[in-house]
């Protein structure tokens, strides 16, 4: 581990509260998906709110809520495109084309994969473990654990001289 990165918190260093908050970032999605299904944007808003209220609760929670948020983006976009494409077909009387059917099947597979990964993520987070999604895990790790410039010259509180 290079010193450019903050060290990763280990399970025994984490409080139950942190583990629960990290797990919550994945579970939030399930609650909001139920409300937001016709409008896929709502779960995204919920994830953003959750992220901003929880990111200050330590690197572990910050990482998991960020991973949950950004991994939601593509699924949300895929779903939104599917919904609007479907509406266009419905109202403008276009054909149910093969590419649309293929797209919907692809969207279903992506949503299922996303659900599965979220559940695994939630379980791991509850156990205090890190869990890296493909691409999003690495991206979140870079964003959360990489030391910013100001961190490099860390200000240290010192006892009175």
């Amino acid at each position: 581990m290079s010193s450019e990165y903050h060290s990763i918190p280990q399970p025994n260093e984490l409080s139950d509260r942190e583990k629960d908050d990290a797990m919550g970032s994945y579970l939030m999605m399930f609650a909001s998906v139920a409300i937001g299904l016709p409008l896929p944007i709502i779960n995204l808003i919920a994830a953003i709110v959750y992220y901003f209220t929880n990111r200050s609760k330590g690197l572990f929670v910050h990482f998991h809520s960020l991973q949950s948020l950004i991994s939601q983006l593509p699924t949300t976009i895929i779903n939104a495109i599917g919904v609007f494409w479907g509406i266009r077909i419905y109202f403008f009387d276009w054909e149910l084309s093969d590419s649309f059917k293929g797209y919907i099947i692809m969207a279903i597979i992506f949503n299922l994969a996303y659900f599965v990964f979220s559940i695994v993520g939630a379980v791991k987070a509850k156990k205090g473990r890190m869990y890296y999604f493909l691409f999003f895990g690495r991206l979140s790790y870079e964003a959360v654990f990489k030391k910013k410039d100001e961190d490099m010259s860390e200000i240290q509180n010192l006892p009175p001289r």
Partner: peptide
């Protein structure tokens, strides 16, 4: 790249051979 490829391939596969 892997993610985008998976996305594209699944879409293509089911477009080409719809269920």
């Amino acid at each position: 790249l892997i993610l985008v490829l998976v996305f594209g391939l699944i879409w293509l596969a089911f477009t080409w051979r719809p269920l």
